[in-house]
Simulated assay, not measured.
Amino acid sequence: MKPSNQSNADDRAVSPVIGVILMVAITVILAAVIGTFVLGLGDQLGDTAPQATFTIDSNTSDSISLTKTGGQSLESADLVLAVDGERVNSSIPSDTWETGERKEIVSESGNWSSGEAQVRIIHDPSGNAVFEQTWDFS
């Protein structure tokens, strides 16, 4: 038979060890969560660009015809066209852009530069390019 004071000592020895481990774990988790948001990383967690592919079919001095050839469906309102690094004030028809659909994007700010230019379609919520190609506008 065990002495009564020995069983109490064993029970008390387990409790502080578990308590310390739990306190350390909670502190580490809280520090990681707070650190993530303080450093601004929490705002970027859900902002990833969708995957899609496009081809440029043709262009004029103030419009460009693009066909979506694959990938996820995209909301046209979330897309911005950039030519040579400058966002173009353009009217992209606002609806869902499905694979196989062609859209003509007309520049509202005038003619695009002649010669080769970098054409990008930017997913505005994430700020990432979903399409990038050099195109000859001459």
Rank of each mutant, 00 (worst) to 15 (best):
T67S: 09
I105D: 02
I18T: 15
I21Y: 01
L39A: 14
G110E: 06
K103S: 13
E101I: 07
S91A: 10
I122H: 03
S7H: 00
L45W: 10
G42C: 12
P16F: 15
E75G: 07
A52H: 05
F137H: 09
T27C: 12
T27M: 12
E86I: 10
G100V: 14
L74H: 07
S114A: 05
T134V: 08
P3G: 11
L81G: 05
A77L: 06
D62H: 08
I64C: 01
D57Y: 00
W97Y: 07
D57K: 00
I64T: 05
V14M: 15
W135I: 01
G46A: 12
G42N: 13
S90H: 15
S114G: 05
P50C: 08
I122E: 02
A117E: 00
S90T: 15
S107A: 15
V80T: 13
I122R: 01
R87Q: 03
G46L: 13
S126Y: 08
A77S: 08
N89M: 14
R102S: 06
T27K: 04
N89K: 15
N128H: 02
S138W: 07
K103H: 13
N111M: 08
L45H: 02
L79N: 04
D62M: 06
A31W: 13
T60R: 14
G127E: 00
D84A: 14
V130G: 02
L74R: 04
G115E: 09
A49Q: 01
G19H: 07
N59G: 02
P50S: 06
G85C: 07
F137E: 05
D10P: 03
S107V: 09
F131T: 04
L81H: 08
P50Y: 04
V33M: 09
G35K: 06
N111V: 14
A82N: 07
K68P: 08
A25P: 04
A32M: 15
G46E: 12
G42L: 09
T48N: 10
T96S: 08
L22T: 13
E132C: 08
T69E: 07
I122Q: 05
P16L: 15
G70W: 04
A52S: 11
V14Q: 11
V88W: 03
G127Y: 00
D47M: 12
W112E: 08
T36R: 12
W112S: 05
D11S: 07
P93A: 12
S114V: 02
D84C: 11
G71D: 11
A117M: 00
Q133I: 05
V33R: 09
S94N: 11
S126N: 07
T134P: 00
I56F: 05
